[in-house]
Amino acid sequence: MNKNRPIRAILTIVAIIVSLLFLLPILWLLASTFRSQNETFASSDPINWSVLWPQHWTLGNIESAINNGFLRNLGNSILVAAVTVIVGLAISAMSAFALAVIPFRGRSATFAIIVLSFLVPFEAIAIPLSQSFSQWGLSNTMLALILPGLGNGLAVFTLRQFFLGVPTSLSEAANLDGAGWARIFWSVYLPLSRPALIGAGLILFLFQWQAYLWPVLVVSNQQLDLAPVAIAKSFGAFTSNYGQVFAETAVLAIIPAIVLLALQRYFVTSVSSTGSKE
């Protein structure tokens, strides 16, 4: 590994520079969280370091976010996202398994339906769907916020692609041992799929983490407002609190990053490193 040291050094430097480019806007967001909005708008021209570094530190934006009940909104978002990820992963992995591993008539047709479903932009059908939800008596419930995130064709698609890559010899061997599909799914495929499950989890998670239009359509009870909705409400008819918006946005950006950082160790676990190759 050590023989390409100079190349590795160069590549590391490239990685650091690219990361910094991606990070800059977020650093600005963080700086704007800890200064007054007047300072934020005053400091961008001409360009200098104070763009990324507050001159007068303040916790005012965070305070005003908390006073506005942002912690509750954040809690709602976390709950909705967590339930969506857990339930969504379970049902998506099950369908993906059926589509990739179980041979049955109608498999391609079912897959086509799944593909079709994620071509439809959710926002375009949100209004008629919200009217159905209200007819079903689901308005203003957590369930109404969670349900649309569960039927996610993209999550099924990505898991199917991964399952197709698992050597069939594994399931055939298990089959010969007399294992049913449920056991093959549970003890052969799932343990191999952590990176893919993390990917599908991201899809399910971000759908809810970013949710804005759907929540405002089906929820009018403030107690149930999700974080992005609360952010939008910071722009009133006679007020605009950018500082608070920046603080809330920064919090929403950082939480998933921490979770993802913690999950990264599972990214190296994969089919190839389990030693069960074809």
């Binding site: 977020i26 992005p228 950082i254």
Partner: peptide, 9 residues
């Protein structure tokens, strides 16, 4: 990280 920032933000 940018993917997790709410679109509005």
């Amino acid at each position: 990280m940018p993917a997790a920032v709410p679109m509005a933000g």
